[in-house]
Design a protein around this nucleic acid. Structure first.
Length: 825
RNA sequence: GUCGGAAUGGCGGAAUUGGUAGACGCGCUAGGUUGAGGGCCUAGUGAGGGUUUAACCUCAUGGGGGUUCAAGUCCCCCUUCCGACACCA
């Protein structure tokens, strides 16, 4: 027998070439007018698109190993699978690299994309490459701009002055994630707040639908919870407090209108536009101005510290509490946020912890208006946030349970025109402007005569111009491209200036899954009929770090585009799977820690099959897992053994077909094969139990190896074919090779094996015999034995007899197929 | 602080519905093959007790209570770790 050595460096490129040459994983789109009837059901399997930077890391290997296993399983169980790939190619890292080196971001991005492609092909991921694109391709962002126009035309994109984070040294606006501890991540300067006109998407219009439709999708519960918290719907009331001195009404939002009689002061956010005007002429101007300036310059982290002592300044004005006519003092304090509610609150120190702390610091009155226990034993038991009957309120409300009082008070406010029931959200509109170069240009011109004019659809794309200097200078680097900036107004033909801000890269990734469906369409973003055929994504897979932003934005786009009649799905991702992180030595991999595992090195050394199968075998894919080279080698041993067994069997030539009724070792082996089919199929059907599925193939392989000399050639060959067939989704090259050696066939063209129930059923089984819940014996019984027979068999088992002896049998519990429990006293 | 998730041998993990705890892999031990090493093959491997070998017994799923004939699994309390949000009125 010649030496059979498993050599992934031979096997893997060979099959990769076949798949590339034959374009095995490409799927055609449905053709208009042709009936879809009788066709196999579709399955759209998608992993979150990668941001190409440098080369892929181990997290990429994991997400695509998981997705590819799903895609292969779906294909072989009779579905038409769309499994595309692209690149989220606009973004800051490439731009920062350009600032440092002067290299065009396009160049470094293209280089990274080429490396990602090369490695994805080396990993043998079954991608439909005919649909590939990068979000920085003009042929793609042309349609990003079209979507922007559609949203703008329908009032879902608008301009608004908004506070942004500004680095005074780099002279640029920063993204939130570029601000670390209130400082610019690049130069360390303290970040300032700055008011700028910014483009926004009106995602808040969709708050309720984004919340309600979570019930219609199969996502991990914790991701839904995070989205619900992020949307932050709270029910309450808007109550109007009037400043008589200036004749201005100030509505506030409260979830506790039942505590309205306990409001003893009123607080505004430092950003509130009326602060200055309110203070004018009170003598408090300087103190208030100092406080506001200080508050505005303080970092969010510092300002938001929960244990921070309350600060604030009296505005010198009063507002009237609408329920009792009481004039209460107005303060400005940084614990009130301009972004939430109306930027002003009624303060109820008796029943709100924060208001209580403020009142204590400023010596303001604290009034109890809800009865309640005093669990902390504080002198007055305040603040008390629980339920109870109203006290110290109006006669008509005192004594009412507070939840009833809440409704009664809101009804009263409504009648008096001083307030109404109201719903408030934590979710804010999506600020999409970035004063950055490497992003999708916002397709708008500013015309002196016509104002803001979107670039007409037939003039798209607005192509990102080349510039020589990417360094930020207080405005977008695009402003320096004068030939580009100076243009004519599409409406009046007069001179106009292009918008120089670019879009947040989350815009690019909010619709890429739609483009995959019809990626080469140059007449439209997509053909609605084709989109209808593929959407929604049946299985979306990615990191939980995108649980909020990306997934919320994509859902919003879907709903908006659906309202505008462009698509007919409400939710983009019917099922979501979030994979856990791979750590090394218990810690997140990072260059600074020096614990990075490079997929390229691993694949070069062990082969893609070993790397992929190991990552799936290491543990449940939704959990974090620690990388171990020893574990990796264990998986390679397994692949190597299965391949060697396959090669040896193939060499011996084809045996005859499996005899009708295998017996002895043949039967054992055939049974084990059917058991493995059942197990792997179950583990992949609606579950992601790759680790136990691979373990089942290992068990089958162990059995083949164990019975190598006892079982007949036909049974062995059947078991080997089955093992390779089942292994294919996890280690496609070696499984394809083993299967081909054995059968001459292509395993990916074979239907998924189906377990023969006749081989799963056993004539007898081992009955567990317990006495008082403890296992005392095991006896072999007939599969169809009656309950009485099982009870008799158990009571006759030697070690049961020994334990029952001298006791009275009180009860016998019989669970057919499992056990008998004899209860004795 | 609030909301989630988790805790099982020396290690990663399995146990899908309350029904044999520890599948599979790593590691380790012994033996075989080999000039040696590696590789490969075989057997063993939760802890403790027990016998000549067996049998067998006790304990064991972070800790404590409970429900049940039966609990890793269900309920209550506690500890630890991880994640998200964090003055959201």
């Amino acid at each position: 027998m010649p030496d059979h050595r498993y050599d992934p460096n031979d096997i893997e490129p060979r099959w990769q070439r076949v798949w590339a040459d034959e374009r095995t994983w490409e799927v055609a789109n449905p053709v208009a007018g042709q009936s879809q009837a009788g066709e196999e059901p579709k399955s759209y399997v998608l992993e979150m698109l990668p941001y190409p930077s440098g080369e892929p890391h181990i997290g990429h290997l994991k997400v695509y190993s998981v997705g590819d296993a799903v895609a292969h399983f779906h294909r072989r169980t009779g579905r038409r699978v769309l499994h595309p790939m692209g690149y989220d190619a606009f973004g800051l890292p490439a731009e920062n690299h350009a600032i440092k080196t002067g290299q065009h971001p396009r160049a470094s991005t293209d280089a990274a994309i080429a490396e990602f492609q090369r490695q994805f092909r080396n990993w043998g991921i079954s991608i439909d490459w005919s649909r590939e694109f990068a979000t920085c391709d003009p042929a793609y962002y042309r349609w990003t701009q079209w979507i922007f126009n559609e949203l703008y035309r329908n009032g879902l994109a608008y301009r608004k002055e908004a506070a942004v984070k500004w680095c005074p040294n780099d002279q640029t606006v920063l993204a939130n994630e570029q601000v670390i501890d209130g400082r610019c991540e690049r130069c360390g300067f303290e970040v300032e707040a700055k008011q700028l006109e910014q483009w926004m998407f009106r995602i808040t219009d969709y708050a309720d639908r984004l919340l309600d439709d979570l019930d219609t999708i199969e996502w991990p519960e914790h991701v839904k919870t995070m989205q619900r918290n992020w949307i932050g719907r709270s029910e309450g009331a808007e109550v109007v407090f009037r400043c008589e001195e200036l004749g201005i009404d100030y509505p506030v939002f409260t979830t506790r209108p039942d505590t309205l009689f306990g409001a003893t002061f009123f607080v505004m956010a430092p950003e509130h536009p009326d602060v200055e005007r309110l203070t004018a002429g009170t003598g408090n101007e300087d103190a208030v101005r100092d406080y506001v300036n200080h508050a505005l310059n303080e970092s969010n982290e510092l300002r938001g510290a929960a244990d921070k002592t309350k600060t604030g300044v009296f505005l010198g004005r009063h507002v009237v509490n609408p329920v009792n006519g009481e004039a209460i003092p107005m303060y400005v304090a940084d614990y009130v946020l301009m972004e939430y509610g109306t930027g002003a609150i009624m303060a109820v120190p008796g029943h709100d912890e924060r208001d209580h702390a403020f009142a204590r610091a400023f010596g303001l009155p604290i009034r109890r208006v809800i009865e309640g226990e005093n669990p902390d034993g504080d002198a007055d038991g305040l603040p008390y946030a629980g339920d109870g009957a109203l006290v110290n309120s109006a006669r008509e409300f005192d004594g009412l349970p507070n939840r009833e009082a809440l409704e009664a008070i809101v009804a009263w406010l409504d009648r008096e025109g001083k307030g109404h029931a109201s719903v408030n959200y934590r979710l804010r509109d999506w600020l999409l402007s970035r004063q950055r170069y490497w992003g999708c240009p916002i397709p708008v011109v500013h015309c002196g005569a016509c104002g803001i004019v979107p670039v007409p659809d037939d003039q798209l794309p607005v192509v990102l111009p080349d510039v020589s200097d990417y360094a930020p200078k207080g405005r977008s680097p695009l402003a320096a491209a004068e030939d580009w900036v100076n243009t004519t107004c599409p409406t009046c033909g007069g001179p106009a200036l292009r918008e120089t801000d670019t879009m947040d890269t989350f815009v690019d990734s909010s619709w890429y899954f739609l483009r995959y469906c019809d990626a080469r369409n140059d007449q439209a973003a997509w053909d609605p009929a084709i989109l209808h055929a593929w959407m929604p994504v049946d299985q979306y897979i990615g990191g939980v770090e995108h649980a909020i932003l990306h997934l919320m934005y994509a859902r919003f786009f879907c709903k908006a585009l659906s309202d505008l009649g462009h698509i007919d799905v409400q939710e983009p991702f019917a099922r979501l799977f979030t994979q856990g992180m791979i750590t090394k030595d218990g810690a997140k991999m990072s260059k600074s820690r020096g614990n990075v595992v490079s997929p390229r090195e691993i694949v070069e050394r062990y082969g893609a099959d070993t790397a992929r199968a190991y990552i799936l075998f290491i543990g449940p894919p939704d959990q974090d897992a620690d990388w171990s080279d020893e574990g990796l080698e264990g998986v390679q041993r397994f692949l190597s053994r299965l391949w060697r067994l396959s090669a040896e069997a193939a060499e011996r030539g084809a045996p005859g077909p499996l005899a009708g009724d295998p017996a002895g070792p043949d039967l054992d082996l055939v049974r084990k094969a059917h058991w493995a089919i059942e197990k792997v199929t179950g583990d992949l059907t609606g579950r992601f139990a790759f680790n136990t599925a691979i373990a089942a193939v290992m068990e089958l392989t162990n059995e083949i190896s164990r019975l190598r000399d006892d079982a007949g050639a036909a049974a062995r060959r059947f078991a080997l074919e089955t093992a390779n067939s089942l292994l294919f989704p996890f280690a496609p090259h070696v499984a394809a090779d083993g299967y081909h050696l054995l059968t001459g066939e292509r395993v990916w063209e074979e239907p998924w094996p189906v377990a023969d129930q006749a081989y799963l059923a056993r004539d007898t089984y081992e009955l567990v015999c317990q006495v008082n819940g403890k296992v005392r014996d095991r006896v072999e019984v007939a599969a169809d034995a009656s309950g009485d027979a099982l009870e008799a068999a158990a009571l006759a088992a030697p070690n049961v007899v020994a334990h029952v002896d001298g006791h009275e049998v009180v009860k016998v519990v019989v669970v057919p197929g499992k056990l008998v429990n004899v209860v004795v006293r």
